[in-house]
Nucleic acid binder design. Structure first.
Lengths: 221, 221, 221, 221
DNA sequence: GATGAATGAGGGTTCATTCAT
DNA sequence: CATGAATGAACCCTCATTCAT
């Protein structure tokens, strides 16, 4: 609740367009903001549209003028974020990351971590919502696997293949390596976003530490 | 959904006692079983007591004869599991694990992993419920931090301290090491329990791989 | 609104059983009574469950404990009446009517008219509901055609066939005769139940008149 | 659904004028058309202005620019039709009918039937709406009685009086005769418009049959 | 004149919980 | 101890209607 920016920031980017490319009303924006806050806090099933309307300063009917159902509202929050999240992996953007990427594994991982950390920071609440709801909405799970899972997996496959060929990475199955890498970063992010959200931390150092561990493990020699 | 045992197994251990130490009736047991299934599937807020009653083959009123509120029912499911989960860490049990524990780091980690994997397998649905509900129930989160977090942290602290002193472990802050270790295992478990629940896997080999990575990282040389 | 008995009368016959053959609660009976009144007055779509609950002196939720939906409530009112209406036609009851029936056409028609008039009088509101709702519920229309239409048609076919063979009835197609007969009676009933509900009338004489007209028409000579 | 013309036809006659005698816009016409379709199909209470707007290809607000309330829209549909229906009875038009009318009863009835059949055919949907809504709008019922009932009653009174005096019609009370006549024709029309709308029929013959029955009844000799 | 966003009352329905039996 | 009828608040959603543009 403390270290995240208000959701306004990234929503602003979407302000002018909703998924049908028509202009968003000011009220519609307020609805989305309120919904993000409340879904994140109480979960989808635990939130009521009347509370969302109230927090948004809007009549309850107004919500349903823009979103046919409560679930539509949920999806309209999650989907653009998902698309944006995977965009860099697909589009060979990661621009800052990928241009120099194949040069040095450690630097690549650092840039990657910083980049994704920023994304998570920016979209924290929506990501929280996504992860909270995935267990209860099979379509979300499927979508997630297809979008995030497969696309990211492919990208990382290339990368590890490359470094394996250069002899810089151990010869274990690619999925094992990917899982290990991602787990370590998720562990880092989860610690500071979820478990200890209040506590200040030295991001650079913690990321460097994690990369060291991913690269060389905890064993001395 | 495929590799987990029915919850009956571990519930049987609790059959004879509820939290007031009185015998559980057969109906009460049926209620708990039904609640576990349905909470796991639909989440607490998404489940209805009437559906639970129906699945349990019990009248709606019967649930409230045993549990004052729906939330009481939730807690009565989660709490005993939590206690059992941390028990080995506190009690110096881990019996198979801890007797020989300070001898060899790798073997210790292996025994630990196998042991906890079994626990997760056994209690899968209840753990699922716990993790799903933590974001929405601050008391659960607090309880979790205090019980699981602190106690496990202490135990691992001792262990890493020991191996650090023996010069077998790198000199990074203990919390960093703990997080790295746990993340790696959670990543392993999550992959096979949540992401690919259908897929068969060679547990021994995957655990060994993960330990190798934790110990020596992915970098060659 | 004036000449009909309260619906209680015929509902009483159904009191002890609902369609699952379980006993009806007192409240359930009140709900049906209220629903009949209100549906008849305002139509199905124009009635609100909250008003029904209020008139029945019952909480709104109580309605939905007994009838899954508002429409279920409608059907539970219409169906038993429909069954009862056609019963005499099928079962060779019409007892008072059919025993002596094939003796004399005029007497038969008179007995029939009196008998059905009584039925309509008794079930007036429910019949009103049925007729009002048929245009908006295709299943009702289908059901009506199948139940009422076909069965009554068959019965009348036999009768007219019989009298045609006896040379007492003109040789026009049976459906034409049936339609003519039924229209005349419906016209009679509709006039006194619907158009002029307040006005007293000499039932016997009016029925006799109608039968005279059906038999011999309006032309002199 | 099959034998009726689109409502456009008769609405065209009203195009140039609404009830304040101002020109109807094209949108207004579309609204009326859509409303007729939807009211006929779902009933007044079961229709929503938003659906009407949609089907008319008009904004929701536009409806209320022309008709203060939903009910106004209903009345604006029913009233002109009612006026037109009774017009011939009042105005001594019935032109084709009445010029030669007092000559021969059978021919008169035939011409009358054909004429009104045509009218019903043309205005089927609006008549359907009127009949469906009468039970729920006392003013409509009153209006109907006054307009249709009384006026038609008077006209028929004259006619029957005339033929009674000529000794061609039985000496029963006029209302009884009128009711009998109208019932028989309504029965005929209802059969083919409502009960068996799909089925082809030989109008001329069926009308002739009905008239035969009205004149001479079903009894042989 | 036409729009469509906004309203807020009310719609049908579900729900956790109570209590007489 | 168990039942299930009853509750009434709250739920999601629809509606006729208004009004600034």
């Amino acid at each position: 609740m403390s270290q995240q920016q208000p959701v306004e920031q990234w929503i602003q980017q979407l302000v002018s367009l909703d998924d049908t490319n028509r202009k968003m009303t000011e009220k519609q924006l307020k609805i989305i903001q309120a919904a993000v806050e409340i879904f994140a806090e109480k979960g989808f099933a635990g939130s009521s549209t009347s509370e969302i309307a109230q927090r948004a300063g809007v009549a309850e009917g107004t919500i349903f003028r823009h979103y046919k159902t409560k679930k539509d509202l949920l999806l309209s929050i999650i989907e653009p974020m998902t698309r944006e999240f995977i965009a860099p992996f697909i589009l060979n953007e990661f621009k800052e990351v990928l241009e120099k990427e194949y040069s040095n594994l450690e630097d690549f991982l650092y840039a990657l971590a910083v980049n994704r950390l920023e994304f998570i920071h920016e979209h924290f609440k929506v990501i929280k919502i996504l992860l909270q709801e995935i267990p209860f909405h099979p379509e979300l799970k499927e979508e997630f696997k297809k979008q995030i899972g497969i696309k990211i997996y492919h990208r990382f496959s290339e990368i590890f293949e490359y470094f394996k060929n250069k002899g810089e990475v151990i010869d274990l199955p690619i999925p094992v390596l990917i899982r290990f890498l991602i787990s370590s970063f998720i562990g880092l992010f989860a610690t500071h976003f979820v478990l200890l959200p209040e506590q200040a931390w030295d991001k650079e150092k913690e990321i460097r530490n994690t990369i060291q561990l991913v690269l060389h493990g905890i064993a001395l020699k």
